[in-house]
Design a protein around this nucleic acid. Structure first.
Length: 459
DNA sequence: ATCTAATTGT
């Protein structure tokens, strides 16, 4: 079949498809087509060949229909599924005479994959019966759609309807808990897994590690992680653990976990590097960040935008602003607004106002309709007391018709110093905002933080 | 013989 792939590239698609003798062959063809980027949806040939296979196949009709259908829905929901694909699958589904639980589940999954939660729910509600797969798909649909509370609610309903959760449902539910930072719920789910003797597969264990890490219970994450022998682990669970440690400020633990990983046969991937770069950035370890950044390419990986963003953050946090700027201009891709934004904030924090002006201008150019970008730049002008420039900027903003959202400032946490930047005196709630800022500053001062207002400006 | 699942600087 691998040779077939090469032929396929040369356009011998139809012959290959005609040689497909089983479902398995079609599946392989499917993956080959994805690999070579042959647009499937437009490929009527594939569908027609598949259907003619289905029609002449010796498997029982009843069995064939749902299995073909589920195969087809998978076909239309792989890669970058769109509503169009779901519509096509739905057409097939509506024309089917022999629907069973599996085909319903396939239709449901198709909507979930296409991020059509409402349509998925419609199918879910219409299903004559539901098994654990139906419930799991629906839960996952809500998780993917960011409706985490709804996901938890559906899980409760499943529990109430007497369907037992399995490891797949638990993965989605834990995902919801992780996103919500709902530690209590997460612990309950963990208990549920133990009580119901749900198999702790590697995927499920990873979800537990991730959930505990995201909820800030790093010790619990570690316990779950250590519950597996090295042989039972893969790069994903290591990433979850290394990344979890990094985001919670356990820099040394994160890096030594990485060292530990390198003593196994598991190879770090680009996500692993992203995690340790993030650890370095958080810990102000610029040299280490450079080292790991270079490791990436040395190990045959391509640094992505995220790696560049992380590396730049490491430079910015360490106050290497000029270096950060050079780094940014020499990247093989255009800097994202968030990267420029990070650099800009770094410039303000480290009082490099010349660079702040330069970067601030670029930000306004890049996002001319983003009110925050104007505010940011005028903060910089306010600090150097260039009210003329601030005024010109305001005029440019007005000319473009950019609406300024409530003139509420932002709070920057830098070490133990809290800085309050920008206070918009033209805002109708100006006095109130000023009071609130002072109030927060007083609260922070009372608990031992050092605070000060950098600028109060007219925009 | 058919359906559901994990890690990311944002």
């Amino acid at each position: 079949m691998l040779n077939a792939a090469l032929l396929c590239k040369n356009g011998n698609l139809i012959t290959l498809l005609e040689n497909c003798k089983s479902m398995c062959d079609f599946k392989q063809m499917h993956s080959i087509m994805i690999t070579f980027g042959i647009p499937l949806i437009q490929e009527d040939v594939f569908v027609s060949k598949f259907l003619s296979f289905a029609a002449t196949s010796s498997i029982t009709w009843t069995m064939l229909i749902p299995s073909s259908f589920s195969f087809l829905t998978k076909l239309y929901s792989t890669g970058t599924p769109s509503l169009e694909d779901a519509v096509y699958a739905r057409k097939l589904f509506d024309e089917m005479s022999q629907r069973n639980l599996v085909s319903w589940n396939s239709m449901l999954d198709c909507y979930v994959k296409c991020r059509e939660v409402l349509l998925a729910r419609e199918v879910f509600d219409l299903m004559p019966e539901r098994d654990v797969v139906s419930w799991s798909s629906m839960i996952d649909g809500y998780v993917k759609g960011g409706e985490y509370y709804e996901a938890l609610a559906i899980f409760q309903k499943m529990h109430g309807s007497g369907v037992n959760a399995n490891e797949v449902s638990m993965v989605s539910v834990l995902n919801a808990c992780a996103h919500l930072g709902a530690l209590e719920q997460g612990i309950m789910m963990h208990r549920y897994i133990i009580d119901k003797r749900i198999t702790l597969t590697l995927v499920l264990r990873t979800s537990l590690v991730d959930m505990y890490a995201k909820c800030g219970a790093i010790d619990k994450a570690l316990t779950v992680f250590r519950g597996a022998s090295v042989k039972q682990t893969d790069v994903l669970i290591w990433n979850a653990m290394i990344g979890g440690l990094a985001t919670h400020g356990f820099i040394h633990e994160s890096l030594s976990m990485f060292t530990e990983m390198q003593n196994t046969s598991i190879t770090p991937d680009e996500i692993t590097y992203l995690c340790i770069l993030s650890a370095c950035a958080h810990g102000g370890l610029v040299n280490e960040a450079w080292y790991f950044f270079k490791c990436l390419t040395r190990n045959g990986m391509n640094p992505k935008t995220k790696h560049y963003a992380c590396m730049m953050d490491a430079l910015v946090r360490a106050g290497h602003l000029t270096e950060a700027y050079t780094f940014l201009t020499q990247m093989p891709m255009e800097p994202t607004a968030s990267m420029l934004g990070a650099l800009f904030n770094g410039c303000i924090n480290h009082r490099n106002l010349d660079l702040a002006e330069l970067v601030g201008k670029k930000l306004v150019e890049l996002e001319p309709d983003h009110d925050g970008r104007y505010v940011g730049l005028s903060n910089a002008y306010a600090v150097i007391k260039r009210w003329d420039k601030a005024r010109t900027l305001r005029e440019a903003m007005e000319k473009r018709g950019v609406k300024k959202s409530p003139g509420w400032s932002f709070v920057e946490i830098l070490g133990s110093t809290h800085r309050f930047i920008a206070h918009d005196k033209t805002h109708p709630q100006s006095e109130k905002i000023y009071d609130i800022m002072n109030f927060i500053m007083k609260q922070l001062t009372d608990v031992g933080f050092e605070c000060h207002m950098i600028a109060s400006l007219i925009l």
